[in-house]
């Protein structure tokens, strides 16, 4: 009894010290390449994380925003840098680049390190729309696949429309006829929805906050296994359709291929400390971003799944 107590006490005492000692990255000035512009959601999440990493390690971790080419430029920058841990970058959906002929990344081009954020895709319609559930949308598309104008809330064949098309494939919709419309971003897609230019917008839930509060749009479903804590009224696709299709966007940290396992473990541990910090957790919660943790090994498997899902959808769309 005494032994366990003192052991527990000792552990509790040593825990912060151990955590501090583990934070051995960045041990020299390093860069984190963000594949989006200053001020977007990705910029926010990774700046929040980088600020913690910088504070814990006492070394500058500079954010480099490279949004050109829809993210291909930024990914190319860090994939081609030296695998010594001085340049890492944002890991986000990448499989579509190769399938659309924009770049040749596969999951082997990267060294996965950790995932810190996941935001499921959601289906949003205009207030007063006759489509009030994902089931009705699926039935409508089964009968007439081209009858609805669906905004991808960004480029098509990307984070938001892939889970949607994946679900419609499962439902037996002729997806080659779907009328998917690209937008310059979620804000532009929602503007189209409000002006009557499209019938459905696919995006994340927090992005629809302002227009939903204004009573102009309505969320009908979210692509996650369980309802989100912040949005208890939005039903999940799993519950509505009985099919466990989830997906959306996700953000993590990866490096160029060929990083030493010991280095990866060190960065992963440092990122974990930053992820668990009060500042990061509350910062994510404030803006409705989902703080989800995956270590390097889990992320590697997840990236493979992402490639398979993307491949299936893009092949189905372009027979």
């Amino acid at each position: 009894m005494f032994i366990t107590r003192s052991l527990a006490f000792g552990l509790a005492l040593s825990a912060p010290v151990a955590a501090m000692a583990e934070v051995a990255w960045p041990e020299k000035p390093s860069q984190l390449v963000v594949i989006a512009g200053a001020g977007g959601g990705s910029d926010y999440v990774l700046r929040l994380l980088a600020a913690e990493l910088e504070k814990n390690a006492g070394q500058p971790l500079t954010i480099v925003n490279q949004a050109q080419g829809g993210g291909v430029v930024g990914m190319t920058t860090y994939v081609n840098s030296a695998p010594d841990g001085s340049t890492v970058g944002q890991m986000s959906p990448f499989a579509q680049y190769r399938m659309m002929g924009q770049a040749d990344f596969t999951s082997d081009s990267f060294t996965p390190i950790a995932l810190v954020n996941m935001d499921p895709a959601a289906v949003t319609v205009a207030e007063g729309s006759e489509l009030t559930s994902i089931g009705m949308i699926a039935d409508r598309l089964k009968a007439e696949p081209a009858s609805l104008r669906i905004s991808c809330g960004g480029g098509c064949s990307a984070s938001w429309d892939i889970p949607f098309v994946s679900l419609m494939l499962d439902e037996g919709v002729d997806v080659t006829k779907l009328n998917l419309i690209p937008a310059t971003g979620s804000a532009a897609g929602l503007q189209e929805l409000a002006s009557g230019g499209v019938d459905i917008v696919l995006s994340s839930l927090p992005e629809t906050d302002a227009l939903r509060d204004a009573g102009m749009v309505k969320n009908v479903a979210v692509f996650s296994a369980e309802r989100l804590e912040r949005y208890p009224d939005v039903p999940t696709v799993a519950a509505e359709m009985g099919k466990d299709v989830s997906g959306g966007t996700w953000r993590g940290i990866a490096g160029p291929a060929g990083m030493e396992p010991e280095l990866v473990a060190r960065i992963e541990a440092a990122v974990k400390v930053a992820f668990d910090s009060e500042t990061f957790q509350s910062g994510m919660k404030d803006r409705g971003f989902g703080a989800v943790w995956m270590d390097a090994a889990t992320l590697a498997g997840f990236m493979k799944d992402h490639e398979l899902q993307t491949e299936r959808v893009i092949d189905a769309l372009n027979p």
């Binding site: 579509q96 002929g101 690209p182």
Partner: peptide, 8 residues
Amino acid sequence: GMDPTSGI
């Protein structure tokens, strides 16, 4: 550059 509509 990348065509914003089709991604080509």
